[in-house]
Amino acid sequence: MLELRLVQGSLLKKVLEATKDLVTDANFDCSATGFSLQAMDSSHVALVALLLRSEGFEHYRCDRNISMGMNLNNMSKMLKCAGNDDIITIKGDDGSDTVTFMFESPNQDKISDFEMKLMDIDSEHLGIPEAEYHAIVKMPSSEFQRICKDLSSIGDTVVISVTKEGVKFSTRGDIGTANIVCRQNKTVDKPEEATIIEMNEPVSLTFALRYLNSFTKATPLSESVTVSLSSELPVVVEYKIADMGYIRFYLAPKIED
């Protein structure tokens, strides 16, 4: 028996919008810790890891660990039927091949339930080691989104370099080149508007902009984004989900042969 009641149902709607273009089918895992997902894109270059901690739900019942395979496009279709202010409850039974999403309007005058078919997904689960990163950049998520979008009109790949000068995003394409440098800036009115660069060593890595642009679909989930870089590791682009957990995207770098 599984019953998860999420008062801020819009969070789940936003999570689906952030993931459904990157991953087609995924297993949602439910345990005492929370509601989580780990899935790779079809080319095995990018990975999304989601955690919504059990404490963030108003009611969280998960009698035993359960994995539910869902088509994210179909799940998104169902969640789009929930209002932004609706409370969403996810219900499942052991051995059932369906999951139910119940939507309640804030004043309880409309209650809907949508039952979706589950699927068997033979997914690969990757072990992601804890890592020390050479550089961690925290910046407004809207700024990161803007940079990725702007650069992708010039080139296909971006070189992200962190030095003591700041973080530089560079691209080149048929029409020319572009460089955007963001310097540390802590003197802002609100902490989420700050750009904070923690650097242990300079690092420079190349990534496909197509994937970074896809990650920025998570921008509505958080005012700030953290980009963690190490020369031997995939980049981690993390959006914290207030009081609940996170959505993290990993992207393997392009490497010179």
């Binding site: 790779m40 095995h44 270059v45 990018a46 990975l47 690969e124 689960h125 990757l126 072990g127 992601i128 080691p129 790949t157 190349t206 496909a208 031997e232 590791l233 995939p234 990993y250 393997a252 770098p253 392009k254 490497i255 010179e256 042969d257």
Partner: peptide, 14 residues
């Protein structure tokens, strides 16, 4: 020449 690496080059299958 620049190649796209794969996640399994860095992370292990569990």
């Amino acid at each position: 020449q620049i190649f796209q690496s794969l996640l399994v080059d860095f992370f292990n299958n569990k």
